[in-house]
């Protein structure tokens, strides 16, 4: 029987050439696990930290007249700020999910 739900149609529209059957086969091969959740989290926090350091460096260079690149510094600061807020919201959602599970009646 042909699956004609909106969900499936959206999936085919977003991943052309991937039928539901192919999608199943295209999953991560068993036995070859990706990085753990903790690793992913640590890595993204380190990335945010790195972005903030880069932004600070750009600010210092601009303030001391070493570079005249105002827009570059602005972009770096904005990038660091957005990355930080994004990571913070992800962390908030994780804590929220944990609390939701903790509140659950067993």
């Amino acid at each position: 029987m042909e699956d004609i739900t909106i969900k499936t149609q959206l999936k085919t529209a977003l991943n052309p050439g991937l039928s539901p059957a192919q999608n199943q086969a295209g999953l991560v091969p068993a036995g070859k696990a990706g990085p753990s959740f903790a690793e992913t989290l640590t890595k993204s926090i380190e990335e945010v930290n790195h972005l903030q350091k880069e932004a600070d460096q750009a600010i210092e260079k601009l303030a001391s007249g070493e570079s005249q690149n105002i827009h570059g510094a602005m972009l770096a600061v904005n990038k660091a700020d957005t990355a930080f807020r994004m990571t913070m919201q992800v962390r908030n959602k994780i804590v929220e999910a944990y609390q939701e599970v903790m509140r659950m009646q067993v």
Binding site: Q52, A73, M74, V77, N78, A80, D81, F84, R85, M88
Partner: peptide, 26 residues
């Protein structure tokens, strides 16, 4: 004038990041 405005903007952007961390609010 341009340099002053740019410095003000950067200091307020940095402070707003810290404020976001304090309030946990984007």
């Amino acid at each position: 004038q341009i340099a002053y405005n740019a410095t003000i903007q950067m200091i307020s952007k940095r402070t707003s990041t810290i404020r976001a961390a304090i309030t946990e609010n984007a």
